[in-house]
Design a protein around this nucleic acid. Structure first.
Lengths: 229, 229
DNA sequence: CTACTCTGCCCGTACGTGCGGTCAGTTTTC
DNA sequence: GAAAACTGACCGCACGTACGGGCAGAGTAG
């Protein structure tokens, strides 16, 4: 029934976080359907029952992964939006952040991206879905701001947000965090093409896309800080 | 119950194609892991054994779905590349075609896009993977041509192809073929943003993106013809 | 024409396995 | 000592697929 509620006077999570992390990695590697309690338990040297004890059902475990992920991303987004005023900088920040997450927390990111679809229709995913929608709305708002400010060409903001999210969410199928291709290069190239595509003047776009520019730096500070705390 | 029909004169495949189509739809709706022989058999009013008789294993059935899909896409691609000389037209054609397929054969397209990842590592998928790589190489080649012709700004062609494929392959998560949003609008918006992002002069981009322009028309003819034969 | 055989679909069942989840009980922690 | 953490045995079920056989039509011999 009602889940463990953390525990009183207990160091945050303990074994629980460990389980969630391992489960997340398995989801990232094999997908939700092929990830199973047995393998996770074996890898952590514990019993299947322990996992059930902590999370109840597999569905709930996935829901928690998604909610934590989206929770962090929303916090970050609000943080860099507060620091970056210009629409083209804000949009670039979303791209830099999206790419950075792929290397900083590859497992969580891939797990999320593989299984996003589930939060559209699956029951028990309402919270995560609401978070996802809120995140997307932030991007749409930025796109509209940009159009009103004349820094983006007029067009369908929602469609553009989907075009952008597609590029980022698809990364899990080809991007290798251990590979030769630096994530900053990916972010920079994506930013350049996207901003130019939206009609942003070259000078502004160049600054926003620059891997060592103010936007990328700002995002890096925020994201890295949250990840290591 | 009497739906099989099949008709005299022996249509190619007979029941076999029917099985494959139903299986494809199930994969599109639930994903490969949750699609199963039992449901397909029940829906077609046949036994599970029949499916096994025709395809052997589930893996092989998926492989055949992917191979057929990529086979058709490759044929189409070669067809419109032969008719369209300019790089910006060729690139736009890939976008128009990608979107058009989502409405013309939604099940096959979604099934493919959901399960593309499998053809990277899964054994038995070598053929489909080779086809996929060939298709991607066609796009990369067009991007390079465009740079040499000065119609695209210099940059990483492979990265750009991935950015573009991301937008298209992600469509299955949000695009509804039955919905209000016309696919031509999606294609046009994607083309505009992409081509502008690559630095294509506005006049050329406008023609290539136009849903009633020569590129979209050419693609429509080729794709529709193949689908209905 | 008849009878026989061969062959490609197709059926129904049964089996093995993997997995999510239960439960009763033990150990650990505060 | 109460609550939480953990265990290991167990259940039920869903699913892939192996298997043995049925049936209808085509080819063939008499």
């Amino acid at each position: 029934m009602a889940e463990p509620v953390v525990a009183p006077g207990r160091p945050r999570g303990g074994r629980r976080d460990e389980i969630l992390a391992t489960f997340t990695r398995h989801v990232a590697e094999r997908g939700y359907d092929r990830a199973n309690f047995g393998d996770v338990a074996t890898e952590l040297g514990m019993s299947k029952g322990t996992i059930v004890h902590h999370f109840g059902t597999k569905d709930r475990m996935l829901a928690e992964v998604q909610e934590r992920y989206m929770g962090r991303r929303l916090e970050e987004a609000h943080a860099f939006l507060a620091r970056l005023p210009a629409p083209e900088q804000r949009l670039a920040a979303f791209v830099h952040a999206g790419v950075r997450y792929s290397t900083l927390e590859p497992a969580t990111t891939v797990a999320f991206q593989r299984e996003v679809v589930r939060l559209t229709h699956e029951p028990g995913m309402e919270t995560a879905r609401a978070q996802r929608d809120a995140y997307r709305d932030l991007v749409v708002a930025v796109l509209r701001e940009g159009q009103e400010a004349g820094v983006f060409v007029p067009g369908d903001a929602r469609l553009r947000s989907l075009q952008m999210f597609g590029s980022l969410h698809w990364m899990w199928t080809w991007f290798d965090p251990q590979g030769r291709l630096p994530p900053e290069d990916v972010a920079a190239e994506f930013c350049r093409t996207l901003l130019r595509g939206l009609g942003t003047p070259d000078e502004l776009a160049a600054v926003a896309a620059d891997p060592h520019g103010p936007v990328a730096t700002c995002v890096a500070e925020i994201v890295d800080q949250r990840a290591t705390r």
